[in-house]
Design a protein around this nucleic acid. Sequence first.
DNA 1: GACCAGGCGTCTT
DNA 2: AAGACGCATGGT
Length: 274
Amino acid sequence: MAVHTNNKIILPAPGFNLAATLFSGQSFTWQQTGPGVYTGVAGIHAANAQYIDGSIVLIPLAGGNPGQATAFWANYFDMDTDYAALETRFSRHKKLAECVQASCGIRVLRQPFFDTLISFIISQNNNIKRITGIVQRLAQGFGAPLGNGLYAFPTPQALATLLPEDLADIRAGFRAKYILDAARRVASGEIDEARLRALPTNEAREALMAIVGVGRKVADCVLLYTLSRTEVVPMDVWMKRAMEQTFPKGMPSCASGYEGIAQQYIFCWARENL
DNA sequence: GACCAGGCGTCTT
DNA sequence: AAGACGCATGGT
């Protein structure tokens, strides 16, 4: 499945679209650093990524040993899910087939818990460009340096003791207090990733929504992008508009169990066509 | 259910 | 150059 040789990690992923996935609004920690080359950070890991001959080719820049890095990125890019099979299944529905066509090769990333929680708190009432900037400044200001000008995402502990004014330079606006509330609850153990994983989706959502600044939408993004609860559909106002125009009767049943992934396809299609 | 909470990217004038 | 508008929302 995943091969690592000469400090390279090769993840076979036929039909994958790296750039579309990286910049589809799931993650805010990647940037293009060359033609077809993308540099990104997730947790303590950093890597250059390219898509070559049907495979994701990663050159780790920071993180654990080669074995750990391989396992981390294979999970990150959701290698255990058969996207070809999903696309075939979604394509049974005429309209959803169009969305699959348009989204060409999107995968739903499995991102580190705390990164995702904070990133999506920042994403509320905000746009991708600005979100990326805020996340970057947060990492530079409070994350561990990884070399090459890259910074790990800050730990909950690093943020938990801060005050909103300490985040002024981050320019997160009114979201600063939300970031800190989330960090404190995670640092104290009140919100615990392992415990959330053991919980049914409804209860995990409820627990997340106890954080000030986490509503239904942000909670569902965390459920989908880190806990891989593919049945949730993080429905925002923009998406609602797209859905009502595209699927007046709701999500097609052929997506059943993978609504969140189907939504990602719809989202990409809608961005092009609506 | 209305309204407010930073500030910034982007589009208009 | 300045102003308007909207934002992958949530709290009050």
